[in-house]
Amino acid sequence: MEKTMEQTLVNEKKRTKFKEIKKYKGAYIMILPAIISAIIFSYLPMYGIIMAFKNFDVKLGIWGSPWAANHGFEHFMAIFENPEMFKAVKNTIWFGLVILFGGYPFPIILALMFNEIRSKWFKKTAQTIAYFPHFLSWIAVIGLVYTFLAKEGPFNQLMVSLFPSWEPVNPLMKSEYFLEIMYISHLWKNVGYSSVVFLAAITGVDPGLYEAASIDGCGKLKQVWHITLPSIKPTMVIVLIMSLGGLINVNFEQVYGLQNAFTQLDNEVIGTLVYRQGIMGGKYSPTTAFGLFQGVVSLILVTTANWVSKKVTDQSIW
């Protein structure tokens, strides 16, 4: 008796749930294309990750291909044994470190400077101009870099006029300047636009705080140090966490675009090596492992930074 009661109750519940769902039929149809798109282009390729643990053969398919040696971890061990790959890892981390920490302070400083401008017209114009390079594609920026640094280009002209003994040279053809060019072109393209977030945070600071401080005799610099910076700390921390993944994820477009016959060999990073050996060279399994290694390290970096930040500063992205 009791059992049938329970059964009908469950059935009733199921039926109302079903009715609920039917009521929202339209909404589900609207979400459906997104779901299908996610399945085909995001979930389906996840299956291909198995290639990292196999010796993928196009004719045998992903599942039919034999497992790699060393319990499937052969290709991961190769990352540290193969000099070419290991060099790419070292380059990626070194470039990432320079770009992340060398680039981090400038947008904040720029935002502070914009904030001090009283003339509305000048502020707006300066912002409009400073944000502009961000909207050019990387390859357009690199086209500009090539012209700028050419032997007869503006860079050498400037150097000759400053130092009459300067011997015109194209730094793009010298592998030792690769990182400098990367760093500067990264700053040129992104510094203005990256300051937007900080400027928004600065604008949100309570003006009463500044008034109180200036009555107490605090100068501009002290106000920035004791009021502005602490107030925008949450934004500073969040931007830092989000960019930490970049430590092992150098921008492919930038590196690939800047590489040429003279500089490519010494400045290969993980992304470009995966492209050359995988997509161009057809070595699918080793490059899948290489890419997976990069992705997992990047994920670990961001999650760890997030966790530490939550403990220490109470700020987190999740």
């Binding site: 996610a38 282009f41 995001s42 996840m46 299956y47 291909g48 997509i279 890419g291 997976l292 992705g295």
Partner: peptide
């Protein structure tokens, strides 16, 4: 979920 799973260039290419 997919935004947090590093699939990588090659599996995407094969797909």
């Amino acid at each position: 979920l997919p935004s947090y799973i590093p699939v990588g260039t090659i599996p995407t290419y094969i797909n």
